[in-house]
Design a protein around this nucleic acid. Structure first.
Lengths: 220, 220
DNA sequence: TCCAATGCGTACCGTACCGTACGGTTCGGT
DNA sequence: ACCGAACCGTACGGTACGGTACGCATTGGA
């Protein structure tokens, strides 16, 4: 009985899967990306992963548990971009922000992220949003914490000025992501210009400094 | 044979439904909002609308046709906010922008809009995104056109300055919507502050003028 | 008054999926 | 060499859904 419980893991449920379970989840992720949410049935997963449905139910308890495990597994794989040392100079701070913005665009535009978000959004409704909350907790919240630390460091050094930490992060998010995320979720494809995440990030950070910077922002 | 064809209506298929069909689509929308995408089965729609499944298939041809008709019907109901006269003074221009931003937040946060977007996103995958394209065409594109006209009027009058019309609209969209849309799609609920769309719109337009305005932006 | 069309209600069929059960097999411990 | 646990492959029951067919009521026109 190696069932991996992670239901009601509001605080920080230590989800540890065996290597075999990780392989199964990896296969499930591949199926999800290739065939969309409709292709994610227990029979298909079992066949693709060379395991039995009985094992799936023994490991993950339920179909919702399996989906939740897939989300948790992917979240555990994606390490929050660069939790490294915080920047000391304004140039380094701007560099960090641009890197963060570019990484954010890349991650949210990735096949796996889009497929998982589509799955969670498709399952969500006004009442029940189990998977949606999980995605928000394991994904959005982590990114917000990372960005919050970065922005706070910039504020401490006097590179930017703001009062409401949540508001400034949401503005940064809006400037960087614009309508790209929802458009891609709906199946739209970005233009070649829009797909240049480095340039998009640079432009967004320029605008961000124009709003929150303390110095005359040197245009790139 | 009053089948309402609207497949491959890339240009602008004139979808006209009979009153009875409109009533059925209205009932379907109610079911969708109340019970999520999973509750949108042909049997349930027929029972709730007091019609037969055979009529559904005769009118809309297919289940996809039915879903597409629901989207088209809702899009035909929501009139693009205020296609009225364009503003002459800068104060009126700012007022128009704030109204547009507030309306955009209200529409995208509405139950029906969220449910339809969830449905289209849940159906979408990397290959097929039939409903997603329809939502983008009937919803996003209309909003973009309206905003483009408004912004162009402001530029003609010299209230704002920009070069790339698409880029400026996307920046406006990002400043207004931030991460609210995806969060709500995932089932999250906005805080009371975030739910004050009027205040959010004012703040966003302030930031927008700080980026693209020609005068020293008077902070409200 | 008759008739054809439209549409409602219901029953039905094939299929797909979730969840479970069973027989056979592999593998680590003793 | 033996045993039990874990696991794979497959099959099965129950259910729900998409799509179709049939019987009957209503309605508008000749």
């Amino acid at each position: 009985m190696t069932q991996a419980v992670l239901k009601e893991s509001e605080t920080g449920g230590f989800e540890a899967f065996t290597p075999r379970q990780n392989a199964v989840l990896e296969t499930a992720l591949r199926l999800l990306v290739e065939g969309g949410g409709g292709a994610l049935t227990t029979a298909r997963i079992a066949r693709a992963a060379n395991c039995s449905k009985e094992s799936l139910y023994k490991w993950f308890g339920d179909r919702d548990g399996l989906l939740a495990a897939i989300i948790a597994y992917q979240a555990s794989k994606v390490r929050v971009p660069g939790t490294g040392p915080l920047p000391e100079t304004e140039a380094a701070f701007r560099e960090h922000l641009e890197q963060f913005a570019s990484d954010l665009l890349s991650v949210l535009s990735g096949d796996v992220s889009l497929a998982l978000n589509r799955l969670a959004i498709g399952q969500a409704s006004r009442d029940d949003a189990h998977l949606g909350r999980l995605v928000l907790e394991r994904g959005r919240r982590m990114i917000g914490q990372r960005a919050g630390a970065l922005l706070e460091a910039g504020r401490r050094r006097g590179f930017i000025r703001y009062e409401d930490g949540d508001a400034v992060f949401q503005t940064l998010y809006g400037l960087v992501i614009r309508d790209f995320h929802v458009r891609q979720l709906l199946g739209d494809t970005l233009t070649t210009e829009e797909g240049d995440f480095s340039a998009q990030a640079k432009s967004a950070i320029d605008q961000f400094f124009a709003l929150y910077g303390t110095e005359g922002a040197a245009r790139s």
